[in-house]
Design a protein around this nucleic acid. Structure first.
Lengths: 110, 110
DNA sequence: CCAACACTTAGCCATTACGCTAACTGTTGA
DNA sequence: TCAACAGTTAGCGTAATGGCTAAGTGTTGG
């Protein structure tokens, strides 16, 4: 169980930064080049590129370079995989409440 | 838009650590004391306590001390709030696909 | 009453994160 | 052809992270 923690570590870490979340959000609307993505941020390009690489390292985005231009796109499968963690978590949590309900019903019945 | 980034930052950061995710998962099954929570981890207590405080600082858990014992419980609302980010994200993404579909349909119709 | 218990505080250390500037590489439009 | 463009590499500085040990505080069971 849970021998794939590292991917989750990387994904959550990547999403912990507002710049990176904004990039993910932007890419949700379609592909974009690095320079285009960088425009809204008051940050030097090398700094911004680090964010891109973190996102790519986390498998949240994909990028490829054609000529001198690098284009990025969202990998929504990875995003979905992270979201799944919450689903699993809620399943445990709801199951516990179910058990509590059962217990209460049982106590009531006696 | 997005003036509550800091809470998300903290929450995602908190969840980026496997120890802390495990604690959240454990607390999904019900309240537990700090010492109980610490058992599965090969880590000194002060180190473990830092994780607890990070989780609490992120609003993912709540704790209160009675006598010498501190008991922790999950704050599932916060967890749900983080999960919502993915929902919002997917909404954007799916809307885009909807738009693409519309475009394709339109092109086809001509 | 006092030793054991359950944290808690303080402080140290190594590593990683995230920003910067300066200088470099390869591509391309005029 | 060559200057402008789009990134990239290298290296630096500060701050935060995540671990540790040692010693302290307040509570409690026997």
């Amino acid at each position: 169980m849970e021998h794939n923690q590292l991917p989750l570590d990387r994904a959550f870490h990547a999403l912990a930064d507002p710049t990176r979340r904004a990039v993910v959000q932007r890419l949700g609307q379609g592909e974009a080049t690095v320079s285009d993505l960088a425009v809204p941020f008051d940050m030097a390009l090398p700094s911004f590129m680090k964010h891109i690489r973190v996102l790519e390292g986390a498998g949240l985005i994909d990028s490829n370079k054609i000529g001198r231009v690098r284009t990025c796109k969202l990998k929504s499968e990875t995003l979905a995989a992270v979201e799944k963690w919450f689903g699993d978590q809620r399943a445990i949590w709801e199951n516990r409440h179910q058990n509590l309900d059962n217990l209460l019903a049982q106590l009531k019945g006696e």
